[in-house]
């Protein structure tokens, strides 16, 4: 019973870290969505240099661990004069990383929109770029909803990695508490439960979004 009480007692302290997690996840997601779409467009562009740059970006991000990317941004960039505060560095690192994965989601979603609809739009007088923005991209967003949601949940869990670059998120808060009270089991159990409490409802939302996307398609 002590264990349960001790675990519950840790929650108020951990909850203090939730706003930082929200800030990280929302900020990084905004970057990932915009940059991911741009990378996807570059990858399907007819301009070879754009395709090359986008592919290189994708390979570098996917070929290196997120933890290393975060450390790089926070500890290496200052050596060339770019110092970033922990939270913005975390947002940037997570955003750049997830942009690569979301670009693949967008790319396949864009390619999945039937060519017939593109031709219909052109035949109705849409310019090629208007066809892309008004017909193809809105539909690829619908198709992407589920995968984007799943990546968002994964990203929330990955915010834990920013503890190594001095962001006082849930895990870092737990580490600090642990060093003060040594109630290791209670503290990390509470931390794990807190992540679950955040991600479980979100998973339900994703399921609903995916059902909606299928219904309209």
């Amino acid at each position: 019973m002590d264990f349960i009480q001790n675990t519950l007692a840790v929650f108020p302290a951990l909850l203090q870290a939730v706003p930082v997690v929200v800030q990280l996840a929302l900020g990084a997601m905004a970057i990932a969505l915009v940059l991911g779409l741009l990378v996807a467009l570059a990858r399907i562009s007819s301009i070879k240099i754009l395709r090359g740059i986008a592919t290189l970006y994708l390979e570098v991000i996917r070929g290196t661990p997120l933890l290393v990317q975060l450390v790089y941004i926070f500890f290496v960039l200052p050596s060339i004069g770019i110092s970033i505060e922990p939270v913005p560095a975390g947002i940037l690192g997570l955003g750049l990383n997830y942009a690569a994965y979301l670009s693949e989601v967008f790319r396949s979603a864009i390619l999945s929109v039937e060519h017939g609809q593109t031709e219909a739009a052109l035949s109705l007088g849409y310019t090629p770029s208007k066809t892309l923005w008004k017909v193809v991209i809105p539909q690829s967003f619908v198709v992407s909803m589920g995968p984007i949601g799943n990546y968002f949940i994964a990203m929330i869990k990955d915010t834990a990695l920013t503890s190594v670059i001095a962001v006082t998120e849930i895990l870092k808060t737990a580490n600090i508490l642990n060093s003060q009270t040594f109630q290791t089991t209670a503290i990390y159990t509470a931390a794990a439960i807190l992540y679950l409490i955040i991600s479980l409802p979100l998973s339900r939302v994703v399921v609903v979004l995916e059902r909606k996307a299928r219904a309209s398609g």
């Binding site: 017939g116 609809q117 031709e119 219909a120 035949s123 017909v135 619908v142 309209s216 398609g217």
Partner: peptide, 9 residues
């Protein structure tokens, strides 16, 4: 078009 090509969304 033969295959209608409606905007599905």
């Amino acid at each position: 078009f033969q295959h209608f090509n409606l905007f599905l969304n």
